[in-house]
Computed example of a mutant assay.
Amino acid sequence: MTSLSRRTLFAGTAAAALAAPGPASAAPAPASYRQALDYAVAKLRAVAPTVTSFPQGTKFEKWTFDAGGGWVGGFWPGLLWMAYLDSGEDKFRALAQESALRLAPRRTDTGDHDLGFLFSPSWVTAWRLTGDSSWRDGAVTAADSLIKRYNPAGRFIRAWGKLGTDDRAGRVIVDTMMNLDLLCFASQATGDRKYVDIAVAHAQTTAAHLVRPDGSTCHVFDFDPATGAPIGQNTVQGYSPTSCWSRGQSWAIYGYTRMHHRTGRAEFLSTAREVADWALDHLDADGVPVWDYRSPLAPNDIKDSSAGAITACGLLDLARATGIARYRTTALRILDALCRTCLTTRSTRAEAVLARGTRNRPSEDGVEISLPYGDYYLMEGLLRVLRPDQVAKALDL
Rank of each mutant, 00 (worst) to 15 (best):
T130R: 10
G131W: 09
G131C: 05
G131N: 13
D132A: 13
D132T: 10
R136G: 03
D137I: 10
G138M: 09
G138Q: 12
G138T: 14
A139N: 12
T141R: 11
A142F: 01
A142Q: 06
A143M: 13
D144Q: 15
D144T: 04
D144M: 02
S145Q: 06
I147G: 07
I147E: 11
I147D: 05
I147L: 12
K148H: 11
K148R: 15
Y150N: 01
N151L: 02
P152D: 08
A153W: 02
G154D: 13
R155W: 00
F156S: 05
I157C: 03
I157N: 06
R158N: 08
R158S: 07
R158A: 09
R158K: 13
R158L: 05
A159H: 07
A159W: 10
A159F: 06
W160N: 05
W160Y: 14
L163Q: 09
L163G: 03
L163N: 10
G164N: 09
T165G: 12
T165M: 06
T165R: 05
D167W: 12
R168N: 14
R168C: 04
G170Q: 08
R171Y: 02
R171E: 13
R171P: 00
R171L: 10
R171V: 11
V172Y: 04
V172I: 15
I173S: 00
V174L: 13
D175R: 04
D175F: 04
T176C: 08
M177S: 06
M178V: 11
M178A: 02
N179G: 11
L180F: 10
L180E: 15
L182P: 09
L182F: 03
L182A: 05
L183T: 09
L183C: 06
C184G: 14
F185R: 07
F185C: 06
S187Q: 13
Q188G: 12
A189N: 06
A189R: 11
A189F: 06
A189G: 04
T190C: 08
T190Q: 10
G191N: 14
G191V: 09
D192Y: 07
D192R: 07
D192V: 00
R193F: 01
V196G: 01
D197M: 07
D197R: 08
I198G: 04
A199R: 09
A199Q: 13
A199G: 05
V200Q: 07
A201D: 14
A201T: 01
A203F: 02
A203V: 01
T205R: 15
T205L: 01
T206K: 00
T206Q: 13
A207I: 11
A207K: 07
A208G: 02
A208W: 00
L210Y: 01
V211F: 06
R212E: 08
R212L: 09
R212T: 02
P213G: 07
P213E: 10
P213D: 08
D214H: 12
D214S: 09
D214E: 14
G215Q: 12
S216H: 13
S216Q: 12
T217K: 02
D222H: 12
F223R: 05
F223G: 05
D224L: 11
D224T: 11
G228V: 03
G228A: 03
